[in-house]
Every structure is written in structure tokens, then in C-alpha cells.
């Protein structure tokens, strides 16, 4: 048996960490303490839950501390776990402190940005043609972090119109990036791209496009059922991770 591919836990982790991290980064654009604190909580929950999923997914979960006792900066996996742990610490410190010192806000923001951004680098630096076939995965994951992060804040009752605009704009960017990636990677990753358009993972891909992007965009444009639209955006964010993770592992690099 081959086995051992990255699966549902990884897709869930990508989703949770990006959604929470995106919410925190966006909340920093707000002046009021309530929104900022909500952002920090959402990020902390996303990152802690995501990190637990990662540990459970290991073949040897009890050995997870092996990650922390050496220094392997070229390994994106190592760097990812380091920034995951440090950003959790930063968020925790922010949550328990009354005043938010500038330096702590900045450091935590950069760490959270790295958490949101490294996942795309992780997939790009593999021998999977669909993941490494274009440099756009970090772009897609970042754009989606902002789309879902803004939607998450909306879902938690923040009705600032700027959030909807942010979510709306980033959703359009995100879907354009996904299409660009499919075209760019096609020459190297035909079976993978075809599986999304009309094969094994077409259900996830088209659900993402229709339910996760187009319908919420329409609802937002109509200013209707905004909470539902936000929930659909979050679902779309998960479907996006799902099909990228699964379709990406259909093949290995061969020439």
C-alpha cells in the first residue's frame, strides 16, 4: 500500500489557521478594542485547533516535540511549526494584556502573516506538479485568508461595511488566482486539473466556485442575508483547501 498522503486534517488545518489568522490581521485595521480582541481570540482558537489537528495527523503524535529541539530553517514544515507556536504565544500575550504594546502587536502580526503564508510555500516546495506548477498557491491562500477572515468577523456580528467590501474584493481576486493557477499548472498537471474540472474532485471545485464564491458575491451585492453569505464564504474556503490538498496528490513529478 502507498498511503500516507496528506488528508482531511491537513485541509482542515489550512482552513482554520488561515481563517482565524486572516480575521486577526483584518481586525488590526480597526481602532476599537472589541474587534481587535475578537480577532485575536479567533486567531488563537484557529491556530491552537489547527496545531492539534497537525499533531493528531502525525504518524507518531507523541514525538511532536522533536520539531522543537533542532533548527531546520530550510524545512518549510519546521519553520511553519515554529511560527505556529510563536504566534500562539503572541496572541495569548495580547489577550491577557490590558494595553497592547506596539512591538507585540507588530511581532504577532508578522508571525500570524507567516502562519497564513507558509502553507502555500509548503505545497509549492514539493514534487507534486499541481502544487509546484505555478507560484500562485501562496497568493491563493493569502487571498482566501482575507476573504474568510473578513467573513468570520461578519459572522461574529461585525457589520462594518468595509468588511463586506474586503471580503467581496478578495473573493474576486481569489477566484481569478485559482483560475490563473489551473491554466498555469495545466501543462505539468493535466490529470490533476482535469480531476477538478470534470473528474473525481469536480464536486468540490464547482461547489467552491458556485456556493463558496458566486452565490455569496451575489448576496453581498444585493445586501441580502449577509450572515448566510459569510457562512457560505467560510464553506468555500474549506472546499478550496480540500480540493487543493486532495487533487494535488494524484500524481508525482514525471517527465
Amino acid at each position: 500500500m502507498k498511503g500516507g498522503e496528506w488528508g482531511i486534517y491537513i485541509a482542515l488545518y489550512f482552513w482554520l489557521a488561515a481563517m482565524g489568522g486572516g480575521a486577526f490581521l483584518i481586525s488590526l485595521g480597526f481602532k476599537d478594542r472589541r474587534t481587535r480582541l475578537l480577532g485575536a481570540w479567533l486567531a488563537l482558537i484557529g491556530i491552537v485547533a489547527g496545531a492539534l489537528l497537525l499533531i493528531v495527523d502525525l504518524g507518531q503524535p507523541a514525538r511532536f516535540w522533536h520539531l522543537l529541539v533542532g533548527i531546520h530553517p530550510v524545512s518549510v514544515m519546521w519553520l511553519g511549526s515554529a511560527v505556529l507556536a510563536l504566534s500562539g504565544l503572541g496572541l495569548f500575550l495580547l489577550i491577557i494584556s490590558k494595553e497592547w504594546p506596539e512591538w507585540l502587536v507588530w511581532t504577532t502580526a508578522i508571525l500570524v502573516l507567516l502562519v497564513v503564508g507558509y502553507t502555500g510555500v509548503l505545497l509549492m516546495a514539493t514534487s507534486r506538479p499541481f502544487w509546484s506548477g505555478s507560484p500562485l498557491l501562496p497568493w491563493i491562500f493569502l487571498a482566501s485568508a482575507y476573504t474568510t477572515g473578513a467573513a468570520l468577523l461578519v459572522l461574529f456580528g461585525n457589520h462594518d461595511p468595509r468588511l463586506r467590501k474586503l471580503s467581496f474584493n478578495f473573493a474576486i481576486i481569489e477566484v481569478l488566482l485559482v483560475i490563473a493557477h489551473l491554466i498555469w499548472a495545466y501543462s505539468q498537471a493535466k490529470p490533476e486539473v482535469n480531476s477538478l474540472i470534470s473528474g473525481e474532485y469536480a464536486w468540490a471545485f464547482w461547489s467552491f466556485i458556485i456556493i463558496g464564491v458566486l452565490i455569496p458575491l451575489y448576496m453581498e451585492a444585493q445586501r441580502k442575508a449577509l450572515a448566510l453569505a459569510a457562512a457560505l464564504v467560510l464553506l468555500g474556503g474549506f472546499l478550496l483547501r480540500y480540493f487543493i490538498v486532495y487533487a494535488g496528490q494524484l500524481g508525482v513529478m514525471r517527465f
Binding site: G29, G117, G120, V121, S132, P135, Y146, R162, L166, I173
Partner: peptide, 26 residues
């Protein structure tokens, strides 16, 4: 591969971050 990954992510963070800040500030 890792280096080009980080380069791409860095540009993405700058471009998308700039857009986000702009829309939030608008």
C-alpha cells in the same frame, strides 16, 4: 524551491496586504 516559494509569498503578502489596508482605510 523553498526560496522561490518564500519570494512568491513575500510579494503576495506585500501586494495583497497593501490592497487590504487600502480598502480598510478607504
Amino acid at each position: 524551491k523553498v526560496a522561490s516559494g518564500w519570494l512568491s509569498a513575500g510579494i503576495a503578502a506585500a501586494v495583497l496586504g497593501f490592497a487590504g489596508v487600502k480598502w480598510l482605510a478607504d
